[in-house]
Write a protein that binds this DNA or RNA. Structure first.
Lengths: 108, 108
DNA sequence: CCAATATTTCGATTATTCTTGAAATATGGA
DNA sequence: TCCATATTTCAAGAATAATCGAAATATTGG
């Protein structure tokens, strides 16, 4: 049962899809997924993926803006974490709106 | 177990994500999903979504290029259909690479 | 407070995508 | 064949996104 205005949900999902639809950002998100609840600092992502700090910042703020990533300042660093709930929401949306009706069928 | 070169799979998935990451294209894909195996002609999608034919053509060839949509000429029309297998592949990729490890957990 | 570290914001440039009317292509029917 | 219908391709411009060095901001330790 959907309580929110469908149009807004669609916009939100397009934002999340757009965020993931870029090689750097998908890579960033995936390393954050692997890092789990511990998360990773901007610097270590930057280093791990060999991205200039300003580029990393550009892309990660896109992910944050889409709600897929959360940020927490820890000392001098900022730790980013994948938002698994938001991601699960995207996957659920795709299953419900972009897959065959057949429940528990083609998209399991 | 993955047999294909991971880099290529990632590229393929970015292509699919990009295809869906646009309001018109997501709308197109969703009407095709609802149309099921019957599919819809370019003209009827164009009309249904109030998109100029050339715009529809631009977007649908993006979806086709990403493998999310198939096309078949039927008389003067071209019938498009959602490719549920490709879509299921995308959802599976997201579940496996972008969700919590926890199998059958956060992304069900 | 000052110096060092971590990250972001700014700015200017380049690259890509979107848009859509008009022209071209393909098909079917008279 | 000729005409009407369906769709695509072309082309040119408008809009949006990506890139990344340099300057600005925030934090900590001394």
């Amino acid at each position: 049962m959907e309580t929110t205005e469908p149009k807004l949900v669609d916009e939100e999902m397009v934002k999340r899809l757009s965020a993931l639809a870029h090689d750097h950002r998908l890579a960033i998100f995936r390393v954050l997924v692997r890092a789990g609840t511990t998360g990773l600092s901007a610097g270590s992502i930057s280093e791990k993926l060999d991205l200039p700090p300003s580029s990393l910042s550009f892309h990660i703020s896109n992910l944050r803006n889409a709600g897929l990533v959360s940020d927490e300042r820890v000392g001098r660093s900022i730790v980013y974490r994948a938002d698994f709930t938001a991601m699960a929401g995207l996957v659920a949306y795709l299953n419900e709106n972009c897959c065959a009706d057949d429940p528990l069928g083609s998209c399991a």
